[in-house]
């Protein structure tokens, strides 16, 4: 069974040593370093009952251009040990933030297509949303192989809009919504938009 890799991103402020997770999502084709530089900032990978499965040193990034930046970002990739339920962002042993995942809810996600406004087609609500998940809107030219991310971090499956101008050579596009609980992602609905109609 192949291991799941995770991307965790967030904010760390070195002025007051505060930080938070912004998002966690599964990561294919990611580079997981074998060795990481030591850092006071760490992600503690834990089971539901607080047993530590791994501790990942995280190097925050404070930009590139002569900025006196206190508010930095971090991005880390790691393999997810089996049984992981909780990620804790730690600095010098102090907990800054917690990310936990719940099993996907029993929401019946779906979306409809609203009336086209100019070059934009809004999604409409036809189902429910899982409060423990976020949603990603993707589209591709019909028959194409590469999905393109149009929006991410949505709190509902029907929160996005499809910008038709991003597919100027297409006769039709496919649209799908992915649901992510952080450690898992699945497609929850898909439809097509035919430009000839």
């Amino acid at each position: 069974m192949s291991k799941t890799c995770i991307q965790a991103v967030g904010i760390f402020n070195r002025a007051d040593n505060s930080g938070q997770f912004v998002a966690v999502q599964p990561a294919k084709e990611s580079y997981v370093p074998q060795q990481r530089p030591e850092s006071a900032l760490k992600v503690s990978v834990e089971t539901e009952d607080g047993r530590r499965l791994a501790e990942i040193p995280v190097t925050p990034d404070f930009g590139s251009c002569d900025d006196v930046v206190d508010e930095g970002t971090f991005q880390t990739f790691f393999e997810l040990p089996e049984g992981t339920k909780v990620l804790r962002l730690m600095h010098d042993g102090q907990e800054l933030a917690v990310f936990s995942t719940s099993p996907p809810g029993a929401a019946a996600e779906s979306f409809g297509l609203g009336l086209r406004r100019g070059h934009s087609v809004p999604l409409t609500q036809t189902g429910s949303a899982d409060p423990n998940a976020t949603y990603t809107l993707q589209a591709r030219e019909k028959g194409g192989s590469l999905w393109q991310t149009l929006d991410i971090g949505l709190d509902r499956p029907d929160a996005g809009q499809v910008d038709l101008n991003q597919f100027p050579h297409a006769d039709a596009i496919e649209v799908r919504v992915l649901k992510s609980t952080g450690f898992d992602t699945e497609e929850v609905d898909r439809t097509e938009i035919d430009f000839s109609e």
């Binding site: 998002a23 599964p26 990611s30 970002t73 192989s145 590469l146 999905w147 991410i152 971090g153």
Partner: peptide, 19 residues
């Protein structure tokens, strides 16, 4: 700037996940 960069990182990974 931090928010924009994080959003780009997430979009990038979602795209890479999709191929």
């Amino acid at each position: 700037a931090a928010r924009v960069l994080l959003r780009l990182q997430l979009i990038r990974q979602a795209d890479v996940n999709a191929g």
